[in-house]
Simulated scan of single mutants.
Amino acid sequence: MTYSSTQTITPFSSNTALALGFSGTLGNIDAYISAVNRLPMLTHEQEMDLAKQLRENNDLNAAQQLVMSHLRLVVSIARGYLGYGLPHADLIQEGNIGLMKAVKRFDPDQGVRLVSYAMHWIKAEMHEYILKNWRLVKVATTKAQRKLFFNLRSHKEGLDSMSQAQIESLAKKLDVKREEVIEMEMRLSGRDIAMDSQSDDEDDKFAPIAYLKTEVDEPTHVIEAQRYDKLQSEGLETALSKLDARSRHIIESRWLQNDDGSGATLHELASEYGVSAERIRQIESAALKKMKSALAAYA
Rank of each mutant, 00 (worst) to 15 (best):
A239D: 10
A144D: 05
G24S: 01
E224A: 15
K289M: 05
S169P: 09
S76N: 15
M186N: 14
T6K: 14
D90Q: 07
D175L: 15
I223F: 09
A299G: 00
L114M: 05
L26V: 06
P11W: 10
S241W: 05
W121L: 06
Q257K: 13
M48C: 07
M41I: 14
M100F: 03
N96F: 02
R79N: 11
M184G: 08
Q282R: 14
N37L: 01
D201W: 08
V112E: 10
W134N: 01
A299Q: 14
T8K: 15
N258F: 13
E234W: 04
M100D: 02
R38P: 01
A270V: 04
F22L: 11
N96Y: 03
M195W: 14
Y3T: 14
V176I: 10
F149W: 11
Y129P: 02
A270W: 00
S253L: 03
R279M: 00
L39H: 13
I97S: 12
E125Y: 14
E218V: 08
H120Q: 06
A286Y: 01
G261D: 00
Y117R: 01
D229A: 15
Y228N: 12
L136C: 01
R79Q: 11
L42Q: 02
L243S: 02
A89L: 00
I9T: 05
L152Y: 09
G235F: 10
V137I: 15
I250F: 09
Y211H: 12
S34Y: 09
D109V: 10
Q46Y: 08
R113Y: 13
D59I: 02
H155N: 09
G80T: 13
T10V: 09
D49P: 03
A144K: 03
F149T: 11
A296V: 09
A89Q: 00
A165F: 04
L20M: 11
P219K: 08
V67E: 12
A19W: 13
D200L: 13
E284D: 10
S69P: 01
T10H: 12
S253C: 08
E45P: 04
S34I: 07
D59C: 03
V67K: 02
A239S: 07
L114Y: 07
T2F: 12
A165T: 13
E234Q: 15
D160P: 07
A102D: 06
L174H: 04
N151W: 03
V75L: 08
K123W: 10
